[in-house]
Simulated assay, not measured.
Amino acid sequence: MTGPMPLTLASIRRAPKALLHDHLDGGLRPATVLELAGECGYDELPAADAASLATWFRDAADSGSLERYLETFAHTVAVMQTPDGLRRVARECVEDLAADGVVYAEVRFAPEQHLARGLTLDEVVEHTLAGFREGEALVAAAGGRITVVCLLTAMRHAARSLEIAELTVRFRDRGVGGFDIAGAEAGYPPTRHLDAFEYMRANSAHFTIHAGEAFGLPSIHEALAYCGCDRLGHGVRITDDITVPGSVADAELGLVAKYVRDTRIPLELCPSSNVQTGAVPSLDKHPFDLLARLRFRVTVNTDNRLMSDTTMSKEMLKLVQTFGYGWSDLERFTINAMKSAFIPFPDRLKIIDDVIKPGYAVMLG
């Protein structure tokens, strides 16, 4: 082949990808939801076949409200309350990501939401990690390659964040890479969980914070200045601190935006999800391109593959079609993500040098 490979969904699937922001309970296969519901006696699903259920999740998530969007998770979480359910969902997650060309993924979930049938927090994490390892083994046996790291999430409206932070540190040498808080932002600022973040910093542990999605610049400022997060989950509202009077070259950055760019704070941007939740009005108005052109450390993510009916390849293709990106841009976004991963530096470098760069060299011809 001479010259770059055409940018299509199929070719993008072949390219190596790194994913930092993906929710385990937002990525189930519709057929698995149905089967697990039958096994555990959950009879409140809104549809009785996989195709209709997939459509319902996508349509219900398209409300334009983060709060409404989050309501869809009641059904997926309900079927993830048993050891077998957790292991299966985690295993299939790994297989699905690998089939889409993802070579590194950080998958997050909230253990506190999976205790309805008597499991302890430690047991929830153990069964989920076992599912991830099973998935990695199946991918390797089929000749593929993927590394999956688990992030543990605390719900920002609850009061268990310190407990989940302690759980994160307890399992950090067993497959858990970091900590997160998630849920509705309005009324639940990250500073409510300062003790958890102080615990993470005291133990030299990684954490990200959902900030700047449904709420504006104050959420981002608190996450950085008071909580000291390593990455921003979403962070699209950083544009509230950027003024573009004419061309992008004339953009004026406020103090928070300058800090985020200068210190290379990674932005875990999720294009389709950001439109669904109303964080941005439409894909063509998504600030991804502005932030990329201003050289923020932007990364591409799925957020919730079931609710957004998406994959990493679909997200990348949408960006290509909307902003005219080429292979070199997709490679840059992928390396941005890998540089920002919650694994040791030598491991990040090895994946960049041995997998990502050679993979995109093939695409670039």
Rank of each mutant, 00 (worst) to 15 (best):
Q81W: 09
G178D: 10
G246N: 14
R108H: 11
S204K: 15
V298H: 06
G178M: 08
V94H: 01
V79F: 01
M5H: 09
T32A: 12
V79H: 03
T8W: 12
A74F: 15
V260K: 00
D347N: 10
Y188H: 15
I343H: 02
T76F: 05
A211L: 05
L36D: 04
I352V: 11
Y325M: 11
L253K: 04
P245R: 04
D353K: 11
P30H: 09
I12Q: 10
L294D: 03
L115D: 10
P46H: 01
I351K: 04
K357P: 14
S63R: 03
R348P: 06
G254M: 10
P6T: 08
E67T: 08
Y188F: 15
D43Y: 09
L290Q: 08
S247C: 14
I352F: 04
N336K: 12
A361T: 08
A10C: 12
L232T: 01
T302D: 13
A78S: 10
Y325R: 09
V149P: 02
A78P: 01
F179C: 04
K357F: 07
P245A: 10
A223S: 09
D22P: 01
E126V: 14
A130I: 07
D289V: 07
L66Q: 00
P266A: 14
L194C: 12
R174D: 09
E126C: 09
D250L: 13
S340M: 04
G143N: 00
S328T: 13
K318N: 15
D230E: 10
G216P: 01
Q321S: 14
A182T: 02
G143L: 03
R237V: 00
R58P: 07
V256D: 03
F342E: 06
V176F: 02
D195F: 07
C229P: 02
V256I: 15
S63I: 00
A140E: 13
M363L: 13
E134H: 03
G27T: 04
G175M: 06
F207S: 00
S204P: 14
D22I: 11
E95A: 14
L97N: 06
L24T: 06
A184V: 12
P83N: 08
Y104K: 04
G178Y: 02
I209S: 00
I351H: 12
R192S: 10
R264T: 14
V103H: 02
M155G: 08
F132I: 07
L9I: 13
F57S: 06
